[in-house]
Amino acid sequence: MKFSLVKLSALAATVLLATTVASCSGPGTPAAQTTPQTTSSAPELSGTLNVFAAASLQQTFTDLGTQFQAAHPKVKVSFNFDGSSTLVTQITQGAPADVFASADTANMKKLSDAQLVAGTPVNFATNVLTLVVPASNPANITSFADAAKPGIKLVVCAAQVPCGAAAKSDAASAGLTLTPVSEELSVTSVLGKVTSGEADAGLVYVTDAKSAGTKVKTIPLGLAKPTINEYPIATVSSSKQQDLAKAFIALVTAKEGQKVLADAGFGAP
């Protein structure tokens, strides 16, 4: 009996530890930010807006959400950032999304094929791939061709996900055959393998490279015709917040939104 009590208390302690860690890792509430009021004559918007956006939009959309809330004090914007195809699955399975922003047109098409897109999606940004190496550049890589050499620990996305498809076509247009040591399931995993110094080089979006700051060195691919990923955004047709959704999309496509996106490294649509 004594033993099981000891075991139980040990387990309880570890569970407690685990849950504390978990609760600390949740997304922080962005601090309120004062932005000049943009809309004043329109009827006041209120309610909660659920925005489902591609993982690569996390920083920029969190900023834009703060701006939107500042402009509409009665509105609460809550985000769900994940891989675009995961988000599409969630929405088609009935997740309460009002706005969907995809990292590629293929996933937006999946949602419109499911009759879940209201109106026509608008392209609001573009993204291209770049080569990143750890800040110390352990393998002395200076070009895309260097990264394709045998013995180099190159990490890319799997061809099944958008960043992997782009990597494949970029390699083809550079006339290179890539021999990666790992094909990750998301672009953030690729970046993680590079920032931790585990990989010699990785192919990520320019926006990811920019967000990693000084932890990585960016080496442009130097392609004449790089693969350009288009980011479309649309209102979800099952949404009960159509007006709010439209207002948010307007912010993303307007000058303010475009500036935030450009600052993060996204290209204009």
């Binding site: 891989g83 195809s85 995961t86 699955t89 990490v155 799997a158 099944q160 996900v161 990666p180 040591v181 790992s182 094909e183 990750e184 399931l185 995993s189 993680g192 393998k193």
Partner: peptide
Amino acid sequence: TLTFAGSLQGVTRTLPLEIYLQREI
């Protein structure tokens, strides 16, 4: 596995990783 070993067919991509990847397409 995903965090430590990566994901490459026949080397590190075990069945759960393959399932997660296939789920995408």
